[in-house]
Amino acid sequence: MAKPVKDKETQLREQQEAETRRRQYRTNQEETRKKLKHARFEESEPVEDTDGKAQVHLPRKRFYRQRAHSNPFSDHRLEYPRSPEDMKWEKLYPQYHDKDSDSMLSKVEIADIGCGYGGLLTKLAPEYPSTLILGMEIRVQVTQYVEDRIIALREKHKDDEVNFQNISVLRGNAMKFLPNFFQKGQLSKMFFCFPDPHFKQRKHKARIITNTLLSEYAYVLREGGVVYTITDVEDLHIWMAKHLEEHPMFERLDKAWEEQDKCVSIMYNATEEGQKVTRNKGSKWIACFRRLPTPEDCD
């Protein structure tokens, strides 16, 4: 504990200055984001870039940090489409939009729920080059970071084979509004990487895997689609596996399957959270489940 002791006022002042710097950085980034016509699905007119190209650098994470928790029950002012048909996907994946027919050439098939800083998205992009991949994140600043990261990657790799046009992110509450984005059976993979453990008993409904929410995931997943979960909290792993196992629409995939699946290894190594756990020499628990066919007597 060799840290020099600072008086409270100095501490407070430093904190405020740091926050001002972070805010300033994010404001500048927002300007860049707007200039680059990057996709947001509200109907704002893109700002035309008049004085040449905006400078694009990979964003710096430390300016976007936000506490790791968000209350999924609160009425955040979220933007979400009235229905999946109203979703303007072309704003998120402009290169997959066919202007002549005004339709998307592809639909989102992979969703990373609570995508955090987007590590998984960027690693999945080259693995599934012809599949649209979406990250959903509830924290505003973290979402902005991922947006800026994708802008920078697209710009940097615009002439490369892997150009990151197939990944995107949006701020959303997947627990409340997933069916507003995705049609029945639209997804083939859903990732739940290092979700908020919500340790307290009375907060358990806030967990991203509950028996009631699993029915909604089963709705947006197609038959044979896969739910991936990974966590460094053993209790949460047991909880998630238990609820998925109990749910009649899911069946567990075994160790052999996990070992041959490339997403499992990406998930294990790619996410920021996963790398942090590795650095801290923590354990990671994985459980994957296949979505079973809809019972014949159900619609």
Binding site: N180, K184, N211, S215, E216, A218, P248, M249, C298, D299
Partner: peptide, 24 residues
């Protein structure tokens, strides 16, 4: 209290039929 109306099979209430989107 959001604007959702959901239709669910019964008694297999783990199978959602669909949502009705129309309210704001």
């Amino acid at each position: 209290r959001d604007e959702h109306i959901r239709i669910t099979n019964y008694p297999k209430a783990y199978v959602v039929k669909n949502w009705l989107f129309g309210h704001h």
